[in-house]
Amino acid sequence: MTHKIELKNVIKSFGPKKVLQGVDLAVPQGSSMVIIGGSGTGKSVALKCILGLIKPDAGSSILIDGHETVGVGARERDGFMRKFGMLFQGGALFDSLPVWHNVAFGLIHGKEDVNKEAAKILAIEKLDAVGLGKNVADLYPAELSGGMQKRVSLARAIATNPEIIFFDEPTTGLDPIMADVINDLIVKCVKELGATAITITHDMASARKIADHIAMIHMGKIIWTGAIAEMDKCDNPYVDQFIHGRANGPITDAIPA
């Protein structure tokens, strides 16, 4: 079986700081991979490398549908970009545009050049899919609460029916109930689209709900990966410490006080 996304030996350093030190990861078609790991372990950088927002160092290889994406030209990169949707951590909504235009942005300006009226109707459909009413469509992002902004951002990420969706800490900064609502929406949207999803998070409740597979990143490397059911049975001390949220263990021991 070919993997939808495959990372081989992905390396990235910023100056002397080695953030990714050889990440290997394979995500099967149609599955939901959750990458867990502490803050500053390179989760976001790995995601941005796949998206092409950050250029990985020489020797790295990132395959999408079996095609190499590292070092390709702008036009080919554009082709890959059309497969992606992304939910950013802070929402990253365009605050100069009303909500519906945010959702329809990729439709109007990006791929198929849908006209504005049709795009607005589609946008309202997508807003409905994330549980937001028609009345929200003409508001501006600044007028919405954090949870609503996340939903709009989710609607924008799925608006173009992408094959691959990334979620960057989707539940961070939300109350537990709203976090669960977002988790449910993510599961529902990914399933309906049949998309392949990668989520990065350190919220274990969210990870358990969203994931088919889990990968744990530590010090710029994937140190454990497996199905969600195996996570609790695994004997990796790093994973054990992380999923149980213990202050003492191999992860914190490694950090000089």
Binding site: K48, L51, G52, L53, D78, M81, R82, F84, G85, M86, F88, Q89, G90, A92, L93, F94, D95, F105, G106, H109, G110, K111, R156, T160
Partner: peptide, 21 residues
């Protein structure tokens, strides 16, 4: 501010070139 709040990255993921836009 758009850079800091990842709006420029968001443009790229929506297949819109931020320089152009």
């Amino acid at each position: 501010t758009m850079r800091v709040t990842e709006q420029i990255d968001a443009l790229t993921t929506l297949s819109v070139n931020p320089l152009k836009y």
